[in-house]
């Protein structure tokens, strides 16, 4: 049984369909990449998986004891207000809220988990710093630490490296790969097809045509060859 399986899923807003007939499965330990053109509906798919918007039709089944609130999420763009006063620690620990039920305050367990994830993301020493004053790469790592506080099982990353320079991007991919090796399922949207092919074992391509399967199969499929520019006609 897969952690998440989708059957004949249609996604979109109100009556406006963005993508339809999506069939795929995500198993524990997968590194699952979602690729496609801008506006193809990648972010919409993620929001549907998270339950932020309802599927238009079809079904999403959660398995292997994965509960809906056990998904860690790194939003595509976190438009944090200018001057928002929030320390790194405050942001990271807010990820723990999902597992607290109706308990109002953080306990020792939440504090410990926040500290661990801050360490894991290499943010030690920055706990008291203001989130707004960090560099783009540091901010993404803070948000990743927050997502990890919400879950160990599965994280959803929506274009985690957009706007980062190449060196920081590589560091972030390394961190994500380590998490995946540690047993966390990773679902990553990427506009960076190279990285998706390098790290992911499963690819979901959405757009006019839909592909779901192993990365190696994607590379030799027609749609994959087109999109990756290997002998396709869609080279920009």
């Amino acid at each position: 049984m897969a952690q998440i399986s989708c059957k004949e899923l249609s996604i979109g807003y109100e009556s406006h369909i963005v993508a339809e007939k999506l069939n795929f499965e995500i198993n524990a330990g997968d590194y699952f990449a979602v690729v496609g053109e801008n506006g193809a509906g990648k972010s919409t798919l993620i929001k549907t998986l998270l339950g932020l918007i309802k599927p238009l039709s079809g079904e999403i089944v959660f398995g292997e004891g994965l509960r809906k609130n056990e998904i860690g999420y790194l939003p595509q763009q976190t438009v944090v207000q200018r001057d928002f006063p929030a320390s790194v620690f405050e942001v990271v620990i807010s990820g723990c809220l999902s597992s607290m039920g109706s308990r109002p305050f953080y306990g020792e367990r939440e504090k410990k988990s926040a500290k661990e994830n801050i360490e894991k993301m290499g943010l030690v020493g920055l706990e008291k710093r203001s989130y707004r004053e960090l560099s783009g790469g540091q901010q993404q790592r803070v948000l990743l630490a927050r997502a990890l506080c919400a879950t160990r099982k599965l994280i959803l990353l929506d274009e985690p490296t957009s706007g980062l320079d190449p060196k920081v991007t590589a560091e972030l991919y390394d961190l994500i790969e380590k998490l995946n090796k540690g047993g966390t399922t990773v679902i990553m949207i990427s506009h960076d097809i190279g990285a998706a092919l390098e790290y992911a074992n499963k690819i979901l391509h959405i757009g006019a045509e839909i592909f779901f399967g192993d990365t190696s199969d994607y590379l030799i499929s027609e749609i994959g060859r087109k999109f990756t520019g290997n002998g396709g006609d869609e080279n920009e």
Binding site: K68, P75, T78, A86, G95, L97, A150
Partner: peptide, 11 residues
């Protein structure tokens, strides 16, 4: 701080 994330954690 982040309405989207809050929603995703069930808040």
């Amino acid at each position: 701080f982040d309405e989207n994330f809050a929603n995703s954690t069930g808040i």
